[in-house]
Design a protein around this nucleic acid. Structure first.
Lengths: 231, 231
DNA sequence: TGCTAAATATGTTATATAGCACAAATATAA
DNA sequence: TTATATTTGTGCTATATAACATATTTAGCA
């Protein structure tokens, strides 16, 4: 992990940036640090103190929880330019999740003390975080029901559609633009790696998708959405 | 459901009230309506538009999601003086959950338009909602892992401890101060009603608790916490 | 009050999914 | 490159939990 100051920070922080006046922007600019993470590198770990608002500039990040018996559950995936790492600070508790880079990623770090200061003076910024948290909470509740009530096929279909919506496709218009190990796919879908592999190859036999290593090409999105919805 | 205006609203809204100046208090007072709900009465339903901040003054409320095949999952339980019903408004979407009264309850309704106005002028109030949402999101993530990774005994133990912490005990110091149908206990713990009944009676045979109808008396909290933690 | 519906209790069976073993393929490193 | 570790793939077995059936108790209500 290497730290670099960057004078063109505004272009990366679009959502927040536009809500700040020039002196606020100056304050953020002076205190933002961009760090680069290698593939699989840890960004923060459970029980650490949350001191920074993080904004993913480049790359892909997973936020996950280490559960029972080393079984991990991926809670959220981040893509540019999303904000993360701030929830625990506001809740006044240590991190209850961990974050790691899926691939080589660049992340902006802004001290939460600064953010807190700004929020107290800038109601637009406060509202931004309220909206972010409110949206995440709705999604978290949705996921809880998906993961607990759907069967394996439905859960995997759900994850694949989620990945498709989140990261889009390659130039061909159907290859999901993220390369996940089967284990990550399993951790996202609350199942064992064996079952992720097995179910994925079932989908393949059924003509829903093709597999080329970690490259997944969706052939029949409608069918996948049907499985997501009805099992 | 009956509506009543109440001039002593401040005493019920303690957390928010103290953050407001007198003119803000006046605005809230003029626009707050207290409604009374009967046992099992619906407070809001899925897909409705969220227009009110609700504050539970008296009683007990469940917030739940209707899942697959009519199987419902209780997401949160509310006790006085907690706020709810506002998340969907901030996320700018219809309700994705439903709320119902477990028992005869009184709830204050404050229009979200008023709350939104106040937030834009009162950063303390904004911070209050940020903290609430941040805390709820952490709890939601925690619950996701509990419900997906723990076995039945662990999930039920978790629910019982949650109820104990949330609603406390009767005068005897060990009877949980809420009377839930086995079905609600099941919906809270992500299991079938049969399994909630079965597992509860196992706990009873093991001397962890006693059952008297819906009255549950915890005899060995330490053992229950152990089951919660290690299965 | 008694009648009817709902909730609780318990046993049995069916099934989804975890767990394990091992082979094949692929990636990583020396 | 070759060697070693990791990931992927497949089959088999074990098991947790759902689903179902039915009796019993309790609660709601006419």
């Amino acid at each position: 992990m290497t730290g670099t100051n960057d004078n063109e920070i505004g272009q990366y922080l679009s959502q927040i940036w536009d809500l700040l006046n020039s002196s606020e922007q100056e304050l953020v600019r002076e205190n933002t640090l961009i760090k680069h993470f290698k593939k699989n590198e840890l960004i923060y770990r459970e029980n650490e103190d949350p001191n920074y608002l993080m904004c993913i500039i480049k790359g892909k990040v997973k936020i996950y929880k280490e559960g029972i018996g080393g079984r991990s559950q991926i809670m959220r995936l981040m893509s540019p330019v999303q904000y993360f790492g701030y929830r625990a600070f506001f809740a006044n508790e240590p991190y209850v999740t961990e974050a790691a880079a899926f691939e080589c990623s660049s992340i902006a770090f802004i001290p939460m003390t600064i953010i807190e200061e700004l929020i107290m003076e800038n109601s637009q910024l406060a509202m931004f975080f309220i909206k972010e948290l409110a949206t995440d909470l709705g999604e978290s509740d949705e996921r809880t029901v998906n993961l607990t009530q759907k069967h394996i096929r439905g859960r995997l279909a759900d994850s694949l559609i989620f990945l498709l919506d989140k990261y889009g496709t390659e130039a061909d218009g159907c290859t999901i633009n993220i390369y996940l190990a089967r284990e990550d796919l399993a951790n996202l879908s609350n199942m064992t790696t064996s079952n992720a592999i097995r179910t994925l190859s079932s989908f393949c036999s059924e003509g829903i998708l093709t597999i080329d290593g970690r490259r997944i090409k969706i052939l029949d999105e409608a069918k996948l959405r049907k499985i997501d919805k009805f099992g």
